[in-house]
Amino acid sequence: MKRIALALLASFAFAATAAHAVEYGKVQPDKSRIAFDYQQMGVAMQGTFGKFVSELRFDPAAPQSASARIEVDLASVDTGSEEGDEEVARKTWFDTKGFPVARFESSAVKPLGGDKYEVAGKLTIKGTTRDVVVPATFTVQGGSGVFEGALTIRRGDFSIGEGAWKAFDVVANDVVIRFRITAAAR
């Protein structure tokens, strides 16, 4: 009886470590992407950030202990036009010289069942930090863990677009940040 109990315990322990062993944490930048959607004169527009570094630790067996940190190099923005890229680097937009990096740092990950999670954290852009909750999914694709999600922010909350751009009639307030972070198992 005692031996069976021990064996059971051992196998539980093994199962637990086996599950923990699959921690996705080696970010694959070439398979990761950060884009944003916005509206200009009522027309849907897309942009991307070419350069960002991300750290990710995610174990599907223990999502609560997962963490994510993303730092976006704002100078790498691609708004679709050179004129636009130059404009958003200015003081009235990102003030890229003063605040070169936008940062997201997770504080808690809540599983919502299935592939779905809610990632709470702090988003810092242009010196303003705000608590955000990001709906995300986690799936395993081709052996890598893929974190995907979208977060709608209001550019006005971060003083992005001041002065003449402050009104939201030409460039809308809502901006959807879409991300896809791919990480291999460690």
């Binding site: 200009q40 027309v43 849907a44 527009m45 036009s81």
Partner: peptide
């Protein structure tokens, strides 16, 4: 250029 034309919005 990625700026769609939406006639009179």
């Amino acid at each position: 250029k990625g700026f769609q034309t939406v006639w009179f919005g």
